[in-house]
């Protein structure tokens, strides 16, 4: 099972770097949820189910919920492309 742990830790590292690199905020929120997803499976494979349950509740549920609702409130959403959204166009009249 050590290769599955290695795959999950590599996924965590790549998703954390993708959060820094991506310029679209919604894609960055999706990559953030992937980091907590892989961390939850790592905790399960290390036989800590209570820590994994807490990580699933906080990381997969609450953090992506709060980040998505704050993106919606701030008007930073943009669907097409990975360009940076026009903050001045969408955010001022919000």
């Amino acid at each position: 099972m050590i290769w599955l742990l290695g795959l999950l830790i590599g996924m965590m590292l790549a998703a954390a770097i993708a959060v820094l690199v991506l310029e679209n905020h919604i894609a960055a929120v999706a990559a953030t949820s992937i980091v907590s997803l892989a961390l939850s499976v790592v905790f399960v494979l290390l036989r800590a189910p209570d820590v994994a349950m807490t990580e699933a509740a906080v990381g997969a549920g609450l953090s992506s919920l709060i980040l998505a609702l704050s993106l919606r409130r701030l008007g930073l959403w943009q669907i097409e492309g990975d360009k940076h959204p026009e903050i001045a166009k969408e955010g001022v009249d919000a």
Binding site: V29, S33, P49, A56, S64, L71, R72, A94
Partner: peptide, 28 residues
Amino acid sequence: YLDVALVYGALAFVGIVAVARAIEGGHS
């Protein structure tokens, strides 16, 4: 570990629905 899977499945659904509403746009 089945409880962990249950909690994770329910809360991941809630998170993805929130992100989908953020993609939909508009003001909440």
